[in-house]
Write a protein that binds this DNA or RNA. Structure first.
Length: 462
DNA sequence: CACACGTCCAGTGCCCGTTC
DNA sequence: GAACGGGCACTGGACGTGTG
């Protein structure tokens, strides 16, 4: 959960009584501690990026079982023992993966449920009639829910953001958008769940369903600042992490505005790749051209996007090739590497990275210098961090121009979701939608023209 | 603690006055 | 007269309180 992350209260979510009772009768879950740990595994939002399972690092496990802090640092406590004991005691079947600190893999734990329990689990949070609190087992109470709603709204409105950062104003405005505003989207959660259940399978399906479940309690997104980017990220699970088709169900009828080819344009400009810039301007959107050149079917566009991001954000060539081969196939790797655009990008990128190394950092869109040594990263990864920080700062500054117009609209326009190079936008007056769209688009164009970046907002009705 | 009812609040749609 | 801001009424949902 986004707030009160490792407290029994923060994890005591509402679930269907059927699900809780089924667990209770199938397994020996007797103590509040065991319910708490189970809640963490099922509903916690600290998840592994790759497999979506709960991360069970030493510190989290120690906290969950109330182990004394000094025992953790002294290395006297083994999380494996606690987890194994939990499994034998309760009779739950756990699927554990091993950690690997060298490649940055966390130890994860997933509960293996039979088909019946799995389906009860998937439906346990949305659209249920009889709800109970998972850990305490108490029945749903409107009073209790109200109390929690207020706590959540308060925590969100007062989420600590540093006023020294350029993203302070936008972040604060987003976090103070009243929770009530999001009610229409919450109503579509059931529909979104149905869509995920019928069209998806495996890890993807469970991941999306988990996010949707979380959204039933925590829909209004809370944005946080991060160390190495001006981008604003949502805290915990949020609608921002849903795949776009699922998101479009929740936000159907809502306008979205995206910067077209944002990263390519910004990078091309910053790295002095005029040919590429001209190519993009000439084609309008780079995608049709690329799909055609690579002879790639349209449904592979998301994969191609990721390839472009990786190229722009400094992924070393061997890994880049590996990624394309894995996701698209060997023949596309060859075609991609042979594209003039790829050569231009890779060459420009290397030169720019050399510049970063010799200057010891970059100056971002706000005129702030960021040193390699301040990233908290070492060697090449510090260079890549700085590289993306620079691109990201322009992206944010340009999108801020849109946010600024919206902030000045006196509630005529608001932003349900901020997605870095795109936003969902709600308009109050249907008759003036086009006017506002034009204003916002022009502000973005004006801001980007200051840097010689031909960035355009593209509007779409979900 | 469940339920009912009243109040409040945000979104929507519409209208009106001002400005260019 | 088009565009725009502001205000007003209405609506539905969330919140708050009283009662048994």
């Amino acid at each position: 959960m986004p707030y009160l992350p490792l407290t029994p209260e923060g994890l005591d979510v509402l679930v269907s009584r059927t699900f809780r009772e089924a667990l209770s009768s199938s397994f020996e879950i007797r103590t509040p501690e065991d319910w708490f740990f189970l809640a963490y595994l099922l509903f916690g939002t600290f998840r592994d990026d790759d497999n979506g399972a709960a991360v069970v690092d030493r510190v989290s496990v120690a906290n969950l079982f109330g182990v004394e802090p000094k025992l953790i640092t002294q290395g006297l406590f083994r999380s494996n023992f606690l987890i194994a004991e939990f499994a034998t005691r309760t009779g739950l079947q756990l699927h554990l993966t091993n950690s690997n600190s060298i490649v940055g893999k966390a130890r994860t734990c997933r509960i293996v449920l039979n088909e019946h329990l799995q389906s009860l689990f998937e439906q346990c949070q949305i659209g249920q009639i009889e709800m109970v609190y998972f850990i305490s087992g108490k029945s749903f109470s409107e009073r209790e829910e109200q109390r929690r709603r207020i706590l959540r709204a308060d925590a969100r409105a007062n989420f600590p953001l540093s006023s020294l950062r350029p993203n302070f104003a936008v972040g604060t405005a987003l976090n103070r958008q009243p929770p009530k505003s999001f009610a229409p989207f919450v109503k579509r959660l059931t529909q979104a769940c149905e869509y995920v259940s019928t069209t998806m399978s495996g890890d993807k399906r469970t991941g999306q369903l988990r996010i949707l479940s979380t959204l039933s309690t925590f829909f209004p997104p809370t944005y946080k600042q991060v160390r190495n980017s001006e981008r604003l990220f949502t805290v915990g699970d949020s609608a921002a992490y849903l795949s776009s088709d699922v998101r479009d169900i929740l936000f159907s009828g809502t306008w979205s505005a995206d910067l077209s080819n944002a990263h390519l344009v910004i990078a091309a400009r910053l790295w002095g790749l005029d040919d590429l810039l001209n190519l993009i301007e000439e084609k309008g959107s780079i995608w049709p051209y690329l799909m055609c050149e690579l002879q790639l079917p349209i449904e592979k566009k998301p994969e191609l996007k990721k390839v472009i991001y990786a190229t722009v954000y400094g992924k070393p060539v061997p890994q880049l090739k590996g990624q394309i081969t894995r996701e698209l196939g060997r023949e596309f790797t060859e075609r991609y590497m042979l594209l003039p655009m790829t050569a231009t990008l890779l060459e420009g990128r290397e030169q720019h990275m050399d510049g970063i190394r010799s200057n010891g950092g970059i100056t971002d869109a706000y005129g702030k210098f960021h040193a390699l040594t301040d990233t908290g990263e070492k060697g090449e990864s510090a260079v890549r961090t700085i590289l993306s920080r620079e691109v990201g700062s322009y992206e944010f500054k340009v999108m801020s121009a849109a946010a600024e117009i919206i902030r000045g609209s006196n509630g005529q326009v608001w932003i349900p979701l901020w997605l870095h190079d795109g936003i969902y936008v709600k308009f109050r007056d249907a008759a003036r939608v086009e006017n506002w769209k034009l204003k916002i688009t022009e502000a973005v164009a004006l801001e980007s023209s200051k840097y010689g970046m031909p960035l355009k907002l593209v509007w779409e009705l979900s």
